[in-house]
Design a protein around this nucleic acid. Structure first.
Lengths: 204, 204
DNA sequence: GTCTATAAGTAGATAGAC
DNA sequence: GTCTATCTACTTATAGAC
């Protein structure tokens, strides 16, 4: 998706805001136009259709999500360091865009066939390397025996879920705690990391 | 939402299926009618409007979700036992209805104002009791010092996220593993419980 | 490139026959 | 209670003026 002109960028930014919040079905071209401060017809002039505009936004979102995983799985680090990097990247990314997880998860569930290809080529390949690495570190005694896929799901769940459940988190913290919501999300970097370290400690 | 007649029940079941899969905006009354094997006009005869029908389904879903939390927080058990019960209930419930988490999370994000009241009265109250209980067990040395809210988010994330990410889990397991998806979800009861036990072990 | 006006199609809802 | 036919409103998309 090329974003040459200024107008095109303005539309794209407005579309991101509306689509990520309301979803494909809930979003209205009129609302995107209002958000962009221009006429509805212009959206079609630059992007032809609602579907095409949505695809642009969605591809960008998928890119942001898989960036976190891919970078981490490519680097030359140990299992624990990789997971820590993954946690840090996601907390930072999702703190700036809390709608991202639900937006992507929804579309994945709505059109799973689109992901067969993407997932098979990228994540599954990197995952294979990660699975092997876990086995090696288990055998060398660096970490204790674990099922790598369960481990990964545990970490992804701990990181991503609280952002998807933002309204609950927000209400609970405002009623019960003296800290801010933003601070709570930042704290999770340390919290989850400690959880990981303890869970993988071979001495336990 | 009363479901007296047989027809009413059939419609309600069809609506649950369509709404939970497509969401309020994505669902079509025609599709619900087709799923129910009857005419579109009948849906309005029994439920007046799409919005009212949706509310019925949604209240039921919220009930199922909060049942897991409330039962657990009411019972007279220790922290670890409560969390284990919570995990078991959720894995069983969500195994039968994998769309439930995303469905509820979406509506919560779309209309957070509706939850201010519900959450404030139910979950937040029970949570208070849970927070206090955690503090007590920490002081008595039964579990190691932890932030109770982070602990709860960790557990909820580990349990709920893999169901929301079903398409990913499904593809990964079918490509990499020799076990079935259903078995993977059942395994999580034990996996998460062990994670909890280790993380709360005061001797570490 | 940007706007106004409008076409074309769709979805929720209702009227009225049976 | 259940159906067919239809109304009304809304939404995407385009035509055409500027």
């Amino acid at each position: 998706m090329v974003k040459d002109t200024n107008t095109e960028r303005i539309i794209f930014n407005a579309a991101r805001k509306v689509f990520q919040k309301k979803g494909l079905d809930g979003a209205r071209m009129q609302e995107i136009a209002d958000e962009a401060g221009m006429n509805k017809a212009l959206l079609h002039y630059y992007f032809r259709s609602k579907e095409k505009l949505f695809q642009g936004i969605f591809n960008e979102s998928i890119g942001k999500i898989s960036l976190g995983i891919q970078n981490v799985f490519n680097d030359n680090m140990g299992v624990i360091e990789k997971l820590q990097a993954l946690v840090n990247i996601y907390v930072d990314t999702l703190s700036e865009n809390r709608y991202l997880p639900l937006f992507v998860l929804n579309e994945m569930n709505q059109h799973p066939e689109k992901f067969e290809e993407i997932l098979s080529k990228t994540i599954v390949v990197h995952l294979k390397g990660f699975l092997i690495q876990v086995e090696k570190e288990v055998q060398s005694g660096k970490i204790k025996p674990v099922n790598p896929l369960h481990l990964l799901m545990n970490v992804l769940g701990m990181v991503i879920f609280p952002f998807a459940a933002y309204p609950v988190v927000s209400i609970i913290i405002n009623k019960n705690m003296d800290s801010s919501v933003e601070q709570f999300y930042l704290e999770r970097k340390k919290e989850i990391f400690e959880f990981i370290v303890i869970a993988l400690d071979p001495k336990k």
